[in-house]
């Protein structure tokens, strides 16, 4: 049922989702930590920026990226001036798009988890002589574990399902930028409904399994907490 190019697209999608999720976890953690603890007056502005991809049509983001990354765009010309190459139609370009696009799905659960930890456990740890770094790694992080799990799974699943951004900046190159949602779209357009059914079923199963895992584990975490 699935052709070799479908399997390639599937592999590429999983790799893209994995890389993007890892980058988001590393960069999103300090951001979420700061957002959860700061008393900065204009914090809401930054929160709105983080949430923007939730409501922005992906094609808008993709279009901006295409224009900005292009050799006539600001970032593209900067890259070329520095001796590099434009990132459109490359895997790295897709990673940049995915990181922006899936950001709220990672940062928001983390921020909520850090907020739920509260100040008290950290203050107690401080009175016992724990350094700020120590407090973060041995108190805040373990307590926020369910949040990390949710963030990772949602970021991953959302990237797997990404379409509009990739459509705009990917260029549909098999093995390089042709992800599974694009391959599926091609099958539908070319009236290859058999392959479309098969790929759709796989995407449905992946998404459903991931969400079931999130909800099941959330329940377990809630049961454990006092």
């Amino acid at each position: 049922m699935l052709s070799a190019s479908d399997l390639t697209a599937l592999g590429l999608t999983l790799r893209l989702a994995l890389v993007s999720t890892l980058i988001l976890l590393v960069t999103g953690t300090p951001l979420a930590w700061w957002l959860a603890r700061t008393r900065w007056r204009y914090k809401f502005l930054l929160e709105a920026v983080v949430a923007l991809p939730l409501v922005l049509p992906p094609t808008v983001l993709g279009f901006y990226l295409l224009v900005v990354l292009g050799s006539r765009g600001p970032l593209g010309s900067l890259m070329e001036w520095l001796g590099g190459r434009s990132l459109a139609f490359t895997f790295s370009g897709l990673v940049i798009g995915s990181v922006i696009y899936s950001m709220p799905f990672v940062v928001q659960p983390l921020q909520n988890a850090f907020s739920a930890v509260g100040r008290r456990p950290l203050e107690v740890a401080a009175t016992l002589g724990a350094s700020p770094l120590d407090r973060f790694f041995t108190v805040a992080l373990p307590l926020a574990k369910p949040g990390f799990f949710t963030a990772a799974v949602l970021g991953f699943a959302h990237t797997v399902g990404e379409f509009g951004v990739v459509l705009m900046i990917g260029g549909n190159i098999p093995g390089k930028t042709q992800v599974v949602s694009i391959a599926l779209y091609d099958h539908v357009e070319a009236l290859q409904y058999g392959q479309a059914y098969a790929l759709s079923a796989i995407l449905l199963i992946i998404s459903f399994t991931l969400l079931v895992a999130v909800y099941a584990l959330n329940r377990r975490f809630q049961g454990v907490q006092p």
Binding site: S71, I173, K176
Partner: peptide, 23 residues
């Protein structure tokens, strides 16, 4: 040329790729 050919969803997108300087 496989690997260097970028495929737009339709001819408008192919045009856009060139006009924006990405291709």
């Amino acid at each position: 040329l496989t690997g260097r050919i970028v495929r737009g969803e339709n001819i408008s997108q192919a045009f856009q790729y060139v006009k924006s300087g990405n291709a």
